[in-house]
């Protein structure tokens, strides 16, 4: 139930409490409420839980799971493939 999935905002309509987006999750596009992420724009990825975006995903922070491996001295470059 606590699943939240990242999706790409394709377009936005409405304002304030009814600010809605068409968000793409792979092959599926769903309507998502953006009231809690007023900073999110078309082209951004948001984290969506039960039809409501709870965060805008920070693309620079998203690399950290892999750059951290370099920091701790684990070898190799990974994580560059993404769909």
């Amino acid at each position: 139930m606590c699943l939240a999935i990242p999706g790409l905002i394709e377009s936005i309509s409405g304002e304030a409490e009814s600010r809605l987006a068409k968000v793409r999750f792979g092959q599926i596009v769903k309507e998502v409420n953006l009231v809690f992420v007023p900073e999110a724009d078309a082209g951004d990825y948001v984290l969506v839980h039960v039809g409501i975006a709870i965060a805008r995903i920070d693309p620079t922070q998203a690399e950290k799971a892999f750059t951290y491996l370099d920091e701790i001295g684990a070898t190799g470059k990974v994580g560059e493939e993404s769909a």
Partner: peptide, 17 residues
């Protein structure tokens, strides 16, 4: 999907292990 699949990368998982 972006921000999901890359975090299932077997190579990175092995390095963390």
């Amino acid at each position: 999907m972006k921000y999901l699949d890359e975090y299932r990368n077997a190579e990175a998982a092995k390095q963390y292990l």
